[in-house]
């Protein structure tokens, strides 16, 4: 178990990680029509899904200590995202007939410049269908998404473990796990929607120029998570010390 002040800091750090992770996960609503690179849903909803998968995974190792909980959360989240990307790519490639192409890279607007996949070196230009902004998830966006999901899952697990530690002295273990799970999910949803305003519904991850707006997400999530963490700390303290019935 950890002390309440450390737990509060963990909630803030977890909230910020959750917010920042959204910038790394490739997602776009128009991806459903193979009209943009990224998984076919809004960035915040996808990140929330990955985060919830991470929290479920973290809950299984709650008795093993902090490090296994964080690793479980991160791996569970990354696994969920990679399966989603794999299935999305299969559908797009064999169902629609579109190869995975980064729209931003194909048009030379990627963060690192050039028209090639930064990791595999595969040429992107020429494979993009006319009138679209790419389709599918090429390797560089998969790597970016995996980094994002690891961060998000770890962030969710941090919040989960912190709330669990703070509430455990006041309620039973089963109830503490349930309450920590729903509170961590709440913190995840609060922080994952804020970056959506910056991303305007579409991002290709860290190879998208929108990654440069990450400082705004960082500040917003830092302030929001701090307020939420302080509220959780204060109420847990009241509950543990029995000040209010």
């Amino acid at each position: 178990m950890i002390d309440p002040v450390t737990a509060t800091i963990m909630i803030i750090a977890g909230g910020v990680l959750v917010g920042v992770c959204v910038h790394f996960i490739p997602a776009s609503a128009t991806g459903a029509m193979a009209a943009a690179t990224g998984i076919a849903t809004g960035p915040s909803m996808l990140s929330a899904g990955a985060g919830l998968a991470g929290i479920y995974a973290a809950a299984y190792s709650i008795d093993s200590g902090l490090a296994p909980v964080i690793i479980s959360g991160a791996v569970g989240s990354a696994l969920m995202l990679l399966i989603t990307i794999l299935c999305g790519n299969i559908v797009l490639a064999f169902g629609i007939g579109t190869p995975p192409v980064s729209g931003q890279t194909a048009s030379g607007k990627s963060t690192f410049g050039g028209t090639k996949d930064i990791i595999t070196g595969f040429e992107q230009e020429g494979y993009r269908s006319p009138g679209t902004d790419g389709h599918g998830m090429p390797f560089q966006t998969v790597v970016s998404g995996t980094i994002g999901a690891l961060m998000g899952g770890a962030g969710g697990a941090l919040v989960f473990y912190a709330v669990y530690s703070m509430t455990l002295p006041a309620i039973s273990t089963e109830n503490a796990v349930a309450l920590a799970g729903i509170v961590a999910a709440g913190v995840f949803l609060i922080n994952s929607v804020l970056p959506a305003y910056v991303l305007v519904g579409k991002t290709e991850g860290m190879f998208d120029m929108k990654i440069r707006s990450m400082h705004r997400t960082f500040i917003s999530c830092l302030v929001t998570s701090s307020i939420v963490a302080c509220v959780i700390y204060a109420i847990s303290w009241l509950a543990v010390s029995g000040v209010v019935a």
Binding site: A29, G42, S44, M45, A48, I182, V183, A185, G186, V187, F188, L189, I190, V193, A196, Y197, L199, V200, G201, V228, V231
Partner: peptide, 19 residues
């Protein structure tokens, strides 16, 4: 907004329900 109605609903309820 650049985010779906669903996101706003999830976010708003997350704030209220978590409180």
């Amino acid at each position: 907004l650049g985010t779906g109605n669903a996101s706003i609903g999830y976010w708003g309820t997350a704030v209220g329900a978590t409180s």
